[in-house]
Nucleic acid binder design. Structure first.
Lengths: 112, 112
DNA sequence: TATATTACATCGACAGCCGATATATGTCAA
DNA sequence: TTGACATATATCGGCTGTCGATGTAATATA
């Protein structure tokens, strides 16, 4: 029941993959969606996002492609099968970690 | 409803302060306690702990003192009133953050 | 006596994240 | 129409958190 590293830094990748597991998106769309869905808790910065997207592509978790929208090229990203596996693993680790923190600080224990 | 930074890296400080809010401890004791209480999820390393303790002392959140145990000097740490305030703030932010992650990944939403 | 364990400590390196900066296009109001 | 703002992608330098490696010293154990 050990988690690989600190599953909290490195957490942003999980959120991005989760978004893309639902539908393809481009960068700015991810920032907006993340912000809205989380009630402005997540304020992902472009300086964080773009390097992260590139590294996820390099790792084989995402695939990027260009799409013309309103006569403008946008870079869309699509999750790969490996990306889905990776996402599942990250979510598992997050649950383990968050549950342990909950135990420590006496919060709600939301896992058996 | 915005959290200061990423409340996950920097999370270790919260766990340490939480331990010390219950009783004074020395370094190794914190590592052991953290490990046992979390079912080995947290494996805090000394290379992480000692610099962290020093910075918490410098920040006024902890006070250190020497105590002789079995004829040996140990460095015990005690949380300060400021440390308790800081801890409360960190726990609040953690709950906000963890709840938002839960919302994102479709986990359990344990906050209103 | 040699090895392991406890205990504290520091250093260099790496990774994640962000602010600043750059570039290009589109929109909207003065 | 010009300047300001928003959208969109991108990179770079720096900061912080974390860890592995290493060092030291005392005690316990085999």
């Amino acid at each position: 029941m050990t988690v690989s590293k600190n599953p909290v830094s490195g957490n942003t990748a999980m959120l991005i993959l989760k978004l893309l597991s639902e539908k393809d998106m481009y960068g700015y769309e991810m920032i907006d969606t993340l912000s809205k869905r989380s009630n402005n808790v997540f304020e992902l910065k472009v300086g964080t996002l773009y390097p992260l997207l590139h590294s996820l592509v390099k790792g084989g978790y995402l695939k990027g492609y260009d799409k013309e929208v309103n006569g403008k090229l946008r870079k869309y990203y699509q999750i790969t099968p490996n990306g889905r596996k990776y996402l599942d693993r990250m979510i598992e680790e997050w649950n383990t970690y968050a549950s342990a923190v909950g135990m420590m600080i006496g919060g709600v224990n939301f896992e058996s």
